[in-house]
């Protein structure tokens, strides 16, 4: 797709087509253009303003986040357990290299993330676009589609899910109509992760709502302009909706990847936190939890947490690097 496909104006180039009003400010009045001392004082005023806006966050960052993070980093070099710990150097990290259950947990987490996130976002975007059409009853559908996300990781969902995908569950009853003999989906090592992926996709409510909010922010005039130029629905989607939605897609993508790396309650649903059957749903977080809270090995658990953090950080950084090629912001930064 190129910018010239249709005569749709992106905000960056909008000055020619934008209606008059507050948005059309004269470039010469921009702060950057002010010279000398005045400019310096504006800069310093801006810095102080930034500090005041950021101060609650900075305090929280230092006291509630960074402090405990440093502590946990320190713990990862100890054999800390129930209030006691001694320095063991890099032993916990060395141990990771020779831990087949950890390797398995990384694999399980990766498969889960890279399958479920794209599927979930696709479902969320599709439903958001359908629901954004302003048809009758849309508020109703929107609420219904959001319902699974409201339920959270509740006990009832766990029980229901096991029953639906169980050996004699709803899924197999439906398959039986077509003469297919189903498996015990939640309890078979080859399929259990698959049902968790479905569960993840099924709770597409949150990204859907964010997509909806994003869609509502797209100015109608762009669509009108595109329509005047004779663009069809698909064309309008590709050249108006999609590019203007990229920040939201990006936002959802980053968040869902982080979320699914941290998935925890989902696995509790199938295995009550044991990672079964046969470690096939043993997420990294679950393994971390098992080591720290069931085996009381908080030192090793801290080391695993830092490994998890490193993995997530790498993927998020990659995401941001790649975003330069496809994400489009309305501001001039």
């Amino acid at each position: 797709m190129t910018d010239n496909d249709v005569a749709v104006v992106r905000p960056k180039q909008r000055s020619s087509g934008a209606p008059p009003g507050p948005a059309a400010s004269a470039p010469s009045m921009r702060p950057e253009r002010v010279r000398g001392r005045a400019r310096r004082s504006i800069r310093s005023r801006e810095r102080w303003a930034a500090l005041s806006f950021l101060s609650p966050w900075l305090i929280g960052l230092l006291a509630i986040t960074i402090g405990p993070m440093i502590a946990s980093f320190y713990l990862s070099f100890t054999d800390y357990s129930l209030g006691y710990g001694e320095w063991v150097g890099g032993e916990n990290y060395a141990r990771m290299l020779d831990d087949p259950r950890l390797a398995n947990a990384i694999k399980v987490t990766a498969v889960y993330t890279f399958v479920s996130v794209p599927l979930q976002l696709a479902a969320a975007l599709l439903l958001a676009i359908v629901l954004d059409r302003g048809l009758r009853g849309m508020a109703f559908y929107r609420s219904i589609f959001y319902l699974p996300s409201l339920l959270g990781g509740s006990v009832a969902i766990a029980i229901m899910w096991r029953q639906v995908f169980g050996t004699e569950g709803l899924v197999n009853q439906v398959l039986a109509i077509f003469g297919i003999q189903g498996e015990g989906w939640v309890s078979h090592p080859d399929y259990a992760l698959g049902t968790l992926i479905i569960l993840h996709v099924w709770t597409f409510g949150s990204p859907m709502i964010i997509f909806l909010a994003g869609l509502r922010q797209i100015p109608t005039m762009y669509y009108e302009a595109a329509k005047i130029d004779g663009a069809g629905v698909m064309q309008r989607f590709v050249s108006v909706t999609l590019p203007l939605l990229t920040p939201i897609i990006f936002f959802n993508l980053v968040l869902q990847i982080i979320n699914s790396f941290q998935s925890f309650t989902q696995a509790f649903i199938i295995s009550s936190g044991k990672g079964g059957p046969a470690d096939s749903t043993m997420f990294l977080t679950l393994y971390l939890y098992d080591q720290g809270f069931t085996q009381f090995d908080m030192g090793y658990a801290s080391a695993i947490a830092w490994l998890l953090l490193a993995i997530i950080a790498i993927f998020t950084a990659l995401n941001f690097l790649m975003s330069k090629f496809w994400v489009f912001y309305g501001d001039n930064d």
Binding site: R43, E46, R47, A49, A50, L51, F53, L54, W57, L61, I64, T65, G67, P68, M69, A71, S72, L75, V254, L255, I258, F261, Q262, F264, T285, L288, Y289, G292, F293, M298, A301, S302, A305, L308, L309, I312, A313, T316
Partner: peptide, 28 residues
């Protein structure tokens, strides 16, 4: 707003989203 270390602070802010709760829980 523009201020020194904006990029770095923003990255740190994103970093905190990634933090698994189970390990900071005891220090917190």
């Amino acid at each position: 707003l523009r201020f020194p270390m904006r990029g770095m602070l923003f990255a740190i802010m994103l970093g905190t989203i990634m933090l698994p709760i189970h390990v900071v829980i005891i220090p917190q």
